[in-house]
Amino acid sequence: MDARPTGFSRVTAPQFDPVVRLRDFTRSFGDNTIISGLDLDIAPGEFVILLGRSGSGKTTLLRTLAGLDPTPGQNVIVPASRAVVFQDARLLPWKKVWRNVALGLRQGDVRQRAEDALREVGLGHRLDAWPLTLSGGEAQRVALARALVREPSLLLLDEPFAALDALTRLRMHELVLSLWTRHRPAVMMVTHDVDEAIALADRVVLLDHGRIVLQERIEAPRGERGQVARALRSRLLGALGGQVLEGPSPAEIIALHAGGLA
């Protein structure tokens, strides 16, 4: 334990420092090892998607990066400014929407900052609404605003759109990409949806049994990924242990929803 570097060394120039750096990361509950020997770097402004089946350790990894689980004696570097959007929006039902966004903000005109963030996600008209009156998509947009108002250098998304209907989900993809383009946080998003991963990511990291089994960097710009999608999907699904059936692929849908951004 003592021989390991303790992190937080500032040897290289800051602009080349990854915002996230895990070396030989291991996490286990009792005898049950969830993640073992995992190395991961995330560059500033990079959009990483973590893909995996249920129980592959994705959420455990995200919770580690969020600082929600203790990591004693591990070589883990995460930025101080980070924010999480959970699958359930986790808004406090007894605080109005703007107060939820302003939760924990201390400097400046808190109300104004919350308002600006809510306008950015298209909810300028629901500032004083009670969270329990929001639809699922609206609640997730509030959760996004609450995360982004902190200007995090690392934004963590834990299957944020899994509970939304297909159309709302596509709109949320566009929203997330446009917010990411404007604010440029490093993003790590957890999902089990291969098409979502292909449409959004700079890099797809595939996790299985607590190990990274495949990494794919996608160079094609978003909205022009119809060409690479089919091959990529079958590689990812293959690594997940799935069967890839030939037939009309949903590549067109990927082009459609990512194309709305350009």
């Binding site: 600082g67 929600l68 924010a83 986790r90 406090l92 007894w94 939760l103 924990g104 609450r146 902190r150």
Partner: peptide, 27 residues
């Protein structure tokens, strides 16, 4: 507990968690 965890992820202190999450939740 999920609300509490959410509040913790935004860096709320222990006192703030009690004030903003636990007490209103128990009201």
């Amino acid at each position: 507990l999920r609300l509490l965890e959410g509040a913790r992820s935004f860096g709320l202190s222990c006192a703030e968690q009690i004030l903003h999450v636990i007490l209103p939740g128990a009201l």
